[in-house]
């Protein structure tokens, strides 16, 4: 019994330490964002704000046009991308789940092979920019990650195959339902759990994506939130460009705290919604890790 208690105590200590290592940096981020710029210059980023100030947030609300725009791009791309990706994925996964489909294995292999081998960045980039002129268009943020990978197709295929009994197809056909109708009014409604799970992962992926913007965008008007953050991260002067009214230089602006404030603002939506989707996220990881 003593042994059990000791273990439980040890488990709590270890897990608390790990949890603290997660919370601590975010706390530093937040506390720094509500400090005054001069106190940061003097004492550095810290967990205790020495000189409370909402200067950074004031600045962000006064110069919010660019941020709101980037936020809008993120929302648009996330919603459109997730919906399109769910549509295409389920439309491809459903026929592959039908044991009676001729050449099913050939098509299945064509999907599967994309998980083993890929052309990599250079040919992909040259193709999209030279032949599809995707550069500096909103499609650059949506198309290159549409299906993400063959995993989601194969996982969905397995789900369809396992949850929908073949008799359903037979009886639907006898009742005169075409394949499209069977798919739309029987298969999809029965598959909400898997659609929700894969949709959640797609949403997170689109929300956090900055790579496509880095590769395909030079036009700042199309930047999503992550691209804007990335720009400010790698080049502090970019903060000045937030200000469209006066030609400010980086020196006039509370840059040190704004950096932290804007990063913090960008994670707030995830933090707030996390408690609601945590369960599905955890379940999704276990589905995704085991092969489809």
């Amino acid at each position: 019994m003593m042994d059990n208690k000791l273990w439980r105590w040890g488990a709590n200590v270890f897990l608390s330490l790990f949890a603290a290592s997660v919370i601590f940096p975010f706390l530093v981020l937040f506390m720094s964002s509500i400090s005054s710029d001069s106190s940061i210059y003097q004492h550095g980023y810290s967990i205790i704000p020495r000189d409370l100030s909402i200067e950074a947030y004031k600045y962000l609300t006064h110069n919010s046009a660019k941020i709101m725009h980037a936020f809008g791009v993120t929302v648009l791309v996330t919603v459109a991308g997730t919906l399109m990706s769910l549509m295409i994925t389920s439309m491809l996964a459903y026929p592959l789940s039908r044991a009676d489909l001729p050449y099913r294995n050939t098509f299945g292999f064509a999907v599967f092979f994309t998980m083993l081998f890929n052309g990599g960045l250079v040919p992909t980039y040259l193709m999209y920019t030279q032949y599809f002129s995707i550069k500096n268009s909103i499609w650059a943020l949506i198309i290159p990650m549409l299906l993400m990978n063959g995993y989601s197709i194969l996982i969905m295929r397995t789900f369809f195959a396992q949850t929908i009994p073949p008799e359903v197809y037979e009886s639907a056909r006898i009742d005169g339902g075409g394949e499209f109708r069977i798919f739309r009014s029987i298969v999809l409604p029965l598959s909400m759990p898997i659609l929700a799970t894969i949709g959640l992962f797609q949403t997170i992926a689109y929300w956090n994506d900055w790579m496509n913007g880095l590769i395909y965008l030079t036009d700042e008007k199309l930047y999503n939130m992550q691209n804007l953050l990335n720009q400010i991260l790698l080049n502090i002067d970019a903060i000045a460009s937030l200000d469209s009214t006066i030609s400010a230089t980086a020196a006039d602006i509370p840059g040190l705290t704004i950096r932290m404030a804007i990063a913090f603002v960008s994670v707030v939506p995830i933090m707030l919604s996390y408690p609601f989707f945590q369960r599905y996220f955890v379940r999704g990881i276990t589905i995704g890790s085991v092969k489809g």
Binding site: I88, M91, G119, G120, F183
Partner: peptide, 25 residues
């Protein structure tokens, strides 16, 4: 046929996004 039609967008996408770059190597 209807099932094959359903597969067209996805297969087309894989062809463009995955298979052409492979050849592009």
């Amino acid at each position: 046929l209807p099932l094959y039609i359903l597969m067209v967008p996805g297969m087309l996408y894989l062809l463009i996004n995955n298979y052409i770059p492979m050849a592009g190597l």
